[in-house]
Design a protein around this nucleic acid. Structure first.
Length: 174
DNA sequence: ACTCTGATGTACT
DNA sequence: GTACATCAGAGTA
């Protein structure tokens, strides 16, 4: 299945998918869609050095730093379209994730947390998801939740947040 | 449970 | 200088 899709179609398709990053695996339970005509999207102003991967080939990563401290992982679809991976259900490589996150901390309950748990940094920007380091196996859900995106001020009412129904691993409820 | 705030890098005005 | 696709810790209740 090609990932060359508009973000609002790709985001729910990625729910349920198994994401493996260098030996650690999690099931994607929460995503958000960002499109080129969306004022909240990094692609809105057009291509720049930072967002270059968002305009690159589909099925690659777009990784950026947020608030100076955390990394966030996206899957690129059509040019200018990307899907932010917001939460995972940890499946394997739990010890490595725990070691990177620290004892007692949630592993993948938010975009910054999952990037830290999986060891993702800016070095992974533009990395393809069919490489030795990254792999993605789709398993689209029968049903999913829709809501408004978190932590943005522009286009705050656009219903572009998606989650797996009933998951206990969402960053927040819907 | 909640609200407030500090940390910190980049891109923008 | 200001705004940010965030998280953790401290405080209040």
């Amino acid at each position: 299945m090609s990932l060359a899709l508009p973000a609002p179609a790709l985001a729910p398709l990625l729910l349920g998918a198994s994401l493996t990053v260098r030996g650690c695996t999690g099931r994607i339970v929460e995503t958000e869609a960002y499109t080129p005509d969306d004022p909240a999207s990094h692609s809105f102003p057009g291509p720049t050095r930072r967002n270059a991967a968002m305009f690159g080939p589909p099925g690659h990563a777009y990784v950026y730093r947020i608030y100076g401290l955390h990394w966030c992982l996206n899957v690129v679809g059509l040019p200018g379209h990307a899907v932010l991976i917001r939460a995972l259900e940890p499946l394997s490589g739990l010890e490595a994730m725990q070691a990177r996150r620290g004892p007692g901390k949630p592993l993948c309950k938010g975009p910054g947390m999952l990037a830290e748990a999986l060891g993702i940094t800016g070095a992974d920007d533009a990395r393809p998801f069919d490489s030795a380091d990254f792999s993605l196996t789709l398993d689209p859900p029968e049903a999913y939740l829709t809501g408004t995106r978190i932590g943005i001020t522009k286009a705050a009412d656009w219903p572009l947040r998606f989650g797996l129904t009933g998951s206990r691993h969402l960053s927040r409820g819907f």
